[in-house]
Amino acid sequence: MTDIVIIGAGVAGMAAAEHLSAAGYSPRLVDKAARPGGRCATRRVAADRDADWFDYGAQYFTVRDDGFRALVDADLRAGRLVHWSPAIASAERVAGTWLLTPSPDDRERLIGPHGLNVWVRQRLQAAGLDVATERHVRRVVAEGKRWRVEYADGTAESADVVVCTPPAVQTAALLGPRAAGIDALAHPDAALAACHSVVVRAPALAERQAIFFKSGRLSWVADNTHKAGRGGEHHLWTLHADATFSEAEVETPTAELADLLVSEFAAATAQRADDMEIVRTHRWRYARPGGGAPDADDLCWTDTAAGLAIAGDWLAGGRVEGAWLSGREAARRLIAAYALD
């Protein structure tokens, strides 16, 4: 059997691994984080499994592709996904005053009943896939007709095929000189843009559970406690900063920007910032598709003769669905090229 290592256990890596496994291969996933999921990032406020949780990366996802629809429907039946139907508002600052109006956006939104990170982990477990976390790949080097995957702890392993799913900048760094000949990595710094994320404990809002911002430093806020189907006076809100603001402040630690973002959330919702408690801050350096992202129609990049594939949402227009489509397409091309040895 062809020996396959997939770097990154987010949605793209998950999709590639699932499709390769279904074709009879035994791919190994490695990820530098403590748990799989990538930007499907979920945390609890305490170690207790019943403690409140919050998504601080992707907040939900939507479905367009028929193949992804089939996966979503199966996961809805299995209880790995549920629908989320929040009351959404649009916020805009006009003449110094924040105006909130109901949003007509009623598209289908999918979330994990315990967070999107749990959804990824459950799918990997259900497929019986081999996932090694806290395995930080330092570089990937061609070694004859195989690849040598070198880790930060000084260990290494060989593979016939390597699938890279980290963001473009990180993938280019892993491949070193090999990246210079890959069109998809021509502008790695511009493939994805940043996003500052802050989670706050704040009062629940009676008539809205999510807000799109049309102006200011924020782009989106969401009530995670509502997503979890829980009540209470105070809820856990995720605040995502605007793309322009995030890029301008990309080198500033999110903790130093948190008060600005919380104050804007408080002002837009007619609340007091003093009644809010910052729970977590996180700077996503590579969060949204940037101006230098490759053509989304390509979905992924592969060199099957060399045994190398690159996948990720930044190659497929962004979104959770884009990551899945990219990983699936990379696996399809590899399967078509090699069949079963």
Rank of each mutant, 00 (worst) to 15 (best):
V137Q: 01
A179M: 08
A126E: 10
V131K: 08
R121Q: 15
P167G: 14
G154R: 01
S158Y: 09
L129H: 05
A173E: 14
R123Q: 14
E157G: 12
E134C: 12
V169W: 04
V163P: 02
R135P: 02
R121G: 10
Q125P: 08
A127H: 15
E157Y: 06
R178V: 12
V137P: 02
Q122E: 15
L174F: 04
P177K: 03
A173R: 08
Q125V: 13
R121C: 13
G128A: 12
V169Y: 07
W147D: 04
V149H: 01
V131T: 06
C164N: 07
P167R: 06
A168P: 03
W147E: 00
G144V: 05
D160K: 14
W119N: 07
A168E: 00
V140I: 08
W119R: 00
V140P: 00
Q170P: 08
A142Y: 11
R123A: 12
L129P: 02
V149S: 03
W147T: 02
R139H: 14
P177A: 08
V149L: 00
C164G: 06
E143G: 11
G176R: 05
W119C: 08
T165C: 10
R148P: 03
T133G: 05
Q122F: 13
Q122H: 10
P167A: 12
A173L: 08
W119I: 09
R178F: 15
A156M: 07
Q125H: 13
L175A: 04
G154N: 06
R146M: 11
G176T: 05
T133V: 15
E143D: 15
V120R: 02
A156T: 07
T155Y: 08
Q170W: 07
V162E: 02
G176E: 07
A156R: 07
A159E: 06
V169K: 06
T155D: 15
A126G: 10
A142T: 12
T133K: 00
